[in-house]
């Protein structure tokens, strides 16, 4: 279990993190969101044991960072945005060196490296020199080092940045499988990705936690459950008039208009999609698509920032 209580971190006179508290249960995948300058990186660095807190406590499985920094770091695995790799080593040498440095018993070393290579899909790259690996495999080697010593908390900073679509699908699988043996904290700017792999989301703004919950809980907070994306064929003026007149529509926003097709996001008073569909068809417009709003987490995130700023 990860416990953060009243965490505060300053750089000189600049306050980066202010009174942050949260608890994360074991084997959960948590997404960590925040705009640039929100204090996300500082919080991650404290959680990784790189920085000491100015105030407050950080515990992993009851081990306090300030009281037992070495024991704390034993329980952490960290992958920064740019994987920290020794290019002259083979993947096996690299993992063995770090596993030993982090105290993994020699008797378990070979089996653990094989296991980690399997989880991160690096099995066939173990004997390859790191400097010759492609970007996707470098990322995987970075994840492999973060878990090789069986940490209780794995922190991944932008784990999918720079990966191609196929690699992203693979990485999603890798991240989910990590949760079988550790708690995983992911920081990412890719909101759809966070929404796909995380059980819970923490949102940081101006050094404070401003939202904490599952995506559904955050959606409920902003009535996002009643937000749908539409594609309609027809005249723009007629569409605008219809949306303004429909009682179940609270607000709408046209996102794109091209080739006679209108893409719009509609916020309804309640989950009354049937009435909306009937209204559109009844008005002689062609309904091509109705769906949950795409990039829902992105919308929630924007709403949240608006709310906190207000």
């Amino acid at each position: 279990m990860i416990e953060v209580q009243s965490l505060r971190r300053t750089y000189g006179t600049t306050l980066a993190v202010d009174d942050v508290s949260f608890t994360i249960e074991a084997n959960t995948v948590v997404g960590f969101l925040g705009l640039n300058g929100a204090g996300k990186s500082t919080t991650l660095k404290v959680l990784a044991g790189l920085l000491m807190p100015t105030d407050g406590t950080v515990r992993v499985d009851g081990v306090d960072l300030a009281e037992a920094p070495v024991g704390f770091r034993q329980r952490i695995g960290f992958l920064p945005e740019e994987p920290p790799l020794y290019d002259e080593m083979t993947v096996r040498e690299y993992l063995a060196f770090l596993a030993r440095l982090r105290g993994l018993p020699e008797s378990e070393l070979d089996a653990r490296i094989a296991e980690v290579a399997r989880v991160t899909q690096l099995d066939h790259k173990l004997e390859q020199v790191i400097g010759e690996l492609s970007h996707g495999y470098r990322k995987r080697a970075g994840i492999a080092q973060a878990i090789v010593h069986r940490p209780r908390l794995v922190i991944l900073d932008e784990p999918i940045s720079g990966l191609d679509p196929v690699q992203i699908v693979d990485m999603r699988q890798v991240i989910r499988s990590l949760a079988r043996e550790a708690t995983v904290l992911i920081s990412s700017h890719n909101l759809p990705e966070i929404s796909q792999v995380c059980d819970r989301i923490l949102v940081l703004r101006d050094g404070r936690i401003v939202a904490d919950g599952t995506e559904a809980e955050l959606a409920a907070r902003f009535n996002r459950a009643n937000v749908v994306a539409l594609t309609v064929r027809g005249d723009r003026e007629r569409f605008d008039k219809l949306m303004a007149a429909r009682p179940e529509v609270r607000s709408f926003e046209v996102r794109r208009e091209e080739g006679g097709l209108i893409d719009a996001v509609v916020t309804m008073e309640g989950d009354d999609r049937e009435a909306l569909v009937a209204g559109i068809v009844g008005a002689g417009l062609g309904l091509r698509r109705i769906d949950d709003a795409v990039d829902e987490l992105e919308e929630i995130f924007i709403d949240l920032n608006r709310e906190v700023a207000a």
Binding site: G49, V70, G71, P84
Partner: peptide, 11 residues
């Protein structure tokens, strides 16, 4: 950028 490996190691 590999300094982080030493800083996060239990040493």
């Amino acid at each position: 950028g590999t300094e982080v490996l030493l800083q996060t190691a239990p040493v």
